[in-house]
Amino acid sequence: MERINVIGTSGSGKSTLSKQLAAQLGYPYHEIDALFWKPNWTQTPDSELLDKIADITHQPYWVLDGNYSRTEPVKWQHVDTIIWVDYSFPRTFYQALKRALSRWLPGKELWPGTGNKETLGNLLLSKDSILLWTLRNYAKNRRRYSALMQSPDYPHIRFVRLRSPAETQAFLNAVQPDQHADSKDASCSL
């Protein structure tokens, strides 16, 4: 595992897992949301976003956190492992709610330098609400990711599906950096 994309519905825990995995392996961590969102909730044009992702995915080691289906042709050219965090809907929705509140209550900036913060309006009333997004996309994402795991288009990719926090912890416990590599050149055995 050297080039890893962690996917899952919003609130699934993909960012938490991505950060843990990157730290454990000594790999750079990249969040697609941070690449996409500019100040004042301005979206990065697709061509610019795809260029940023191409720069990352041409590197030898990385953990990429996020879905963005339009980025798949670029990011999955070089990925060797896709980890799908696929927890139950109640757990995923609860985690999305908990995360949203933990960002909104203290007025936490979501991505450094953007000034973008959760507001009560965008949590509950907006068509772009992360809670509404989770409700709308959970079942759709499960169908799509299940199909992707079976797709003959990606024979070079190892898919890992984690269905519970216990499975995730067991997976993390099994991932060990190669003892003979330094952190810049770390590979891992599993």
Rank of each mutant, 00 (worst) to 15 (best):
P73R: 14
K127Y: 03
R70E: 00
G113K: 09
Q95A: 15
S102K: 03
Y94R: 07
D128N: 14
N122H: 14
K75A: 05
W111V: 10
W84I: 08
G115F: 07
K75E: 00
F93E: 01
E118Q: 07
A96W: 05
Y94P: 06
I82G: 01
V74E: 01
T71S: 14
T119A: 04
P106K: 05
Q95H: 13
V74F: 08
G121C: 08
R70L: 09
G121Y: 11
S129K: 10
E72W: 15
G113S: 13
P106W: 02
H78V: 13
L110D: 03
G115V: 01
L110A: 06
G107Y: 04
L110K: 12
V79D: 09
R91T: 07
D86T: 00
V85C: 07
F89R: 11
D80E: 12
L125S: 11
W84V: 08
P90F: 07
F93C: 04
T119Q: 07
G107M: 09
Q95L: 14
R103I: 02
K127R: 13
P73I: 11
L110N: 01
P106M: 03
Q77N: 10
L123H: 04
L125T: 11
S102A: 06
K108T: 01
H78P: 05
K75T: 11
P90M: 04
I83D: 06
K108I: 00
L124H: 03
T114P: 08
P112D: 02
D128W: 15
K117F: 02
W104M: 14
W104N: 11
R103V: 07
T92N: 13
K75P: 08
T81D: 15
A96D: 02
H78T: 14
F93L: 12
G115D: 05
L123M: 12
S102T: 02
K127F: 05
I82W: 02
P90I: 03
T71K: 13
R99E: 00
A96Q: 01
P73M: 10
T81C: 15
N116Y: 15
F89P: 03
R99M: 10
I130T: 14
W76H: 12
L97I: 04
W84R: 00
G107D: 00
L125W: 15
S102N: 02
F93A: 04
E118A: 09
P112Q: 12
I83V: 10
G115P: 08
L101F: 03
Y87E: 04
V79S: 12
K127E: 01
Y87T: 05
S88E: 06
R99P: 10
P90K: 03
N116Q: 12
R91H: 06
L124G: 01
K98M: 05
F89D: 00
W76I: 13
Y87H: 04
P90T: 04
K108Y: 00
E72L: 15
T92Q: 09
T92G: 10
L125G: 07
K127V: 06
K127A: 03
S102D: 01
S129L: 12
A96Y: 04
T71R: 13
L101P: 05
K75Q: 07
L105F: 06
I83C: 04
S129D: 07
L120C: 08
V79H: 05
P73H: 09
D80K: 11
R103Q: 10
T81E: 14
G113H: 09
